[in-house]
């Protein structure tokens, strides 16, 4: 693993920003199994900034796929497991605006649905301490320039749940703009949904594909080498169409961009 030494680059020292902070990484279930690069990059990035990163093994999922399909009762034990797993940590950080949004927006409702006041209290605490990686970097560590180097042309898709549920705002873009060597191209109709929508893509496959095709067309129009986003399942959806079209544009999680350094590249 490469730990960039910011001082050698004559840039403001970001390295100490995380000193003394222990972060509990919530990898998210999809990243754990399908996209380990994103939580790996998150770990490396946070360690580079001085944090201690622990991975509580009891973690599973935020429950979003079930609750968004309408299965409340089934999701309650998942919420309970999440709350118990992360209750003791000051900072819970995930490389996913969507999963963080689900924790923030749905876990309290589900604790109430279960009529479990004790669970609700634990959930209240955990929810307040759960961050998307972009929020943790900017709001808690106070860094925009994380010392990353990524000499490529990229375009950024702000995923719907990162924008409208987690409310990460312009944080990801600010982080990207501080990356050395990067060229960021505007994505036309960036705020339009890519058509993934979890089980929507299975229940309404035709509409989902039609929406993904629009997004893929807009991405291709930018001439970028990489499509950056903060949610891997949206990337999977868009890049699935891009791949089928042999466009050559690669999907990449924002944490991987931010973890890249000159030494590593």
């Amino acid at each position: 693993m490469t730990i960039t030494s910011p001082t050698t680059q004559g840039r403001p020292a970001a390295g100490a920003a995380g000193a003394g902070k222990t972060v509990a990484l919530f990898s998210t279930c999809a990243n754990d199994v399908m996209f380990p690069q994103a939580p790996m990059a998150t770990t490396q990035l946070l360690e580079r900034l001085g944090c201690r990163v622990v991975f509580p093994k009891k973690q599973t999922c935020c429950g979003q796929p079930l609750v968004n399909t309408g299965y409340y009762d089934e999701t309650v034990p998942i919420v309970r497991n999440f709350a118990e797993t992360f209750a003791e940590y000051d900072y819970v950080v995930a490389p996913s605006g969507s999963c963080v949004g689900a924790v923030r927006h749905q876990h309290q409702m589900l604790a109430d649905h279960a009529g479990d006041a004790g669970l609700r209290r634990v959930v209240d605490g955990v929810v307040a301490r759960t961050y998307d990686i972009s929020e943790f970097l900017i709001d808690v560590l106070g860094v925009e320039d994380v010392g990353a180097y990524f000499p490529h042309v990229v375009t950024y898709h702000p995923t719907c749940h990162s924008m409208r549920v987690a409310h990460v705002g312009d944080r990801p873009m600010r982080l990207l703009q501080a990356v050395r060597g990067i060229t960021i191209r505007d994505l036309p109709d960036a705020d339009r949904c890519c058509g993934f929508g979890g089980t929507f893509s299975l229940k309404n496959p035709d509409v989902s594909v039609a929406m993904a095709a629009d997004k893929a067309r807009n991405v291709a129009s930018t001439g970028a080498e990489y499509l950056v986003a903060g949610d891997n399942l949206c990337l999977l959806n868009i890049s699935g169409v891009l791949r089928r079209q042999h466009s050559g544009i690669l999907p990449i999680h924002i944490a991987e961009v931010l973890a890249s350094t000159e030494e590593a590249s």
Binding site: N31, P39, T43, R52, V54, F55, L236, R243, R244
Partner: peptide, 25 residues
């Protein structure tokens, strides 16, 4: 039908973490 999916990775994140980290981080 309309999208290609990459093959799953050979190592889960938790396996990588256990291989490279102690439980205390």
């Amino acid at each position: 039908n309309a999208r290609d999916v990459p093959i799953p990775p050979t190592e889960s994140f938790r396996a990588w973490y256990a291989r490279t980290h102690h439980e205390d981080g």
